[in-house]
Amino acid sequence: MTGHVVVMGVSGSGKTTVAEGVVARTGWIFAEADAFHPQANIDKMASGTPLTDEDRWPWLRDLAAWMAEHGAKGENTVITCSALKRVYRDVLREDVAALEGEHRVVFAHLDGSAEVLAARLEGRRGHFMPASLLQSQIDTLEDLDPDEDGVRLDLTEPPAPLIDQVMGSVAPGQ
């Protein structure tokens, strides 16, 4: 089986930390979804303007194609992606689902209070996403549906137990 983990959540939730921990344990191929954004999206967010669905569709399709490209070669991947809406997660699953063989896309949703997230963003430096856009992401976020392959994680927990939970979702017994 080929597996793909999407570590999801709003900005400041700890996606990179958890994703890097999963990669350290598995050796899987890693990508930051932010690296797939076109410059126009980055400029828009940096100016304090939330992205629209129209801004996100090409970016999400590029991420899905990247996972499927690796999956077609039998390679497992880990990506960080906000994946705020069910329809966005559906796009991320599409190309992988079309591959022959058994492939899974597991979502690891880092969830927490607006207060904790705001405090984290206030202390963050060197990222294009301003703290002023946090509420727009929170307002857009849709929890994982029961039929989605994934796990909800409390972002206030230390990284090691969060990574353990992701690993338990991807490969039970690890």
Results as ranks from 00 to 15, higher is better:
residue 7 V to T: 06
residue 7 V to Q: 01
residue 7 V to D: 02
residue 8 M to P: 01
residue 10 V to H: 00
residue 10 V to R: 01
residue 11 S to M: 15
residue 11 S to C: 15
residue 12 G to E: 07
residue 14 G to N: 05
residue 14 G to C: 08
residue 14 G to E: 03
residue 14 G to A: 12
residue 15 K to I: 00
residue 17 T to Q: 08
residue 20 E to N: 13
residue 21 G to N: 11
residue 24 A to E: 13
residue 25 R to A: 15
residue 28 W to D: 11
residue 30 F to V: 07
residue 30 F to G: 05
residue 31 A to T: 07
residue 34 D to P: 02
residue 34 D to T: 13
residue 36 F to M: 15
residue 36 F to I: 03
residue 38 P to M: 10
residue 38 P to L: 10
residue 38 P to F: 12
residue 39 Q to F: 06
residue 41 N to Q: 01
residue 42 I to C: 07
residue 45 M to H: 03
residue 45 M to R: 02
residue 45 M to V: 05
residue 46 A to I: 09
residue 49 T to V: 13
residue 49 T to H: 11
residue 51 L to D: 03
residue 52 T to V: 04
residue 52 T to D: 11
residue 58 P to Y: 09
residue 58 P to G: 09
residue 62 D to G: 05
residue 64 A to N: 02
residue 65 A to H: 12
residue 69 E to C: 00
residue 69 E to R: 08
residue 70 H to D: 04
residue 72 A to K: 06
residue 72 A to C: 04
residue 72 A to H: 06
residue 74 G to H: 06
residue 74 G to A: 03
residue 79 I to C: 15
residue 81 C to W: 00
residue 81 C to E: 02
residue 83 A to G: 05
residue 84 L to M: 09
residue 84 L to I: 01
residue 84 L to R: 04
residue 85 K to H: 00
residue 87 V to C: 12
residue 88 Y to K: 00
residue 88 Y to E: 03
residue 90 D to E: 07
residue 90 D to K: 05
residue 91 V to S: 00
residue 91 V to E: 01
residue 92 L to P: 00
residue 93 R to H: 06
residue 95 D to C: 02
residue 98 A to K: 06
residue 98 A to R: 04
residue 98 A to M: 07
residue 101 G to H: 04
residue 101 G to T: 02
residue 103 H to G: 05
residue 104 R to G: 12
residue 104 R to P: 02
residue 105 V to Y: 00
residue 106 V to F: 10
residue 110 L to P: 00
residue 110 L to Q: 01
residue 111 D to V: 13
residue 113 S to H: 14
residue 114 A to R: 13
residue 115 E to C: 04
residue 117 L to Q: 08
residue 117 L to S: 01
residue 118 A to T: 06
residue 119 A to D: 10
residue 120 R to K: 15
residue 121 L to D: 07
residue 121 L to M: 15
residue 123 G to A: 14
residue 123 G to N: 15
residue 124 R to C: 12
residue 124 R to K: 14
residue 126 G to V: 03
residue 129 M to Y: 07
residue 130 P to R: 03
residue 130 P to C: 14
residue 131 A to L: 12
residue 131 A to T: 11
residue 131 A to N: 08
residue 134 L to C: 04
residue 135 Q to E: 11
residue 135 Q to C: 11
residue 137 Q to I: 07
residue 140 T to A: 03
residue 141 L to W: 13
residue 142 E to L: 13
residue 142 E to Q: 15
residue 148 E to F: 13
residue 148 E to I: 14
residue 149 D to L: 14
residue 151 V to L: 12
residue 154 D to C: 08
residue 155 L to T: 05
residue 156 T to L: 10
residue 156 T to R: 11
residue 158 P to L: 01
residue 159 P to D: 03
residue 160 A to D: 15
residue 161 P to T: 11
residue 162 L to M: 14
residue 162 L to C: 06
residue 162 L to K: 06
residue 162 L to W: 14
residue 164 D to P: 06
residue 166 V to Y: 01
residue 166 V to C: 08
residue 168 G to I: 10
residue 171 A to R: 15
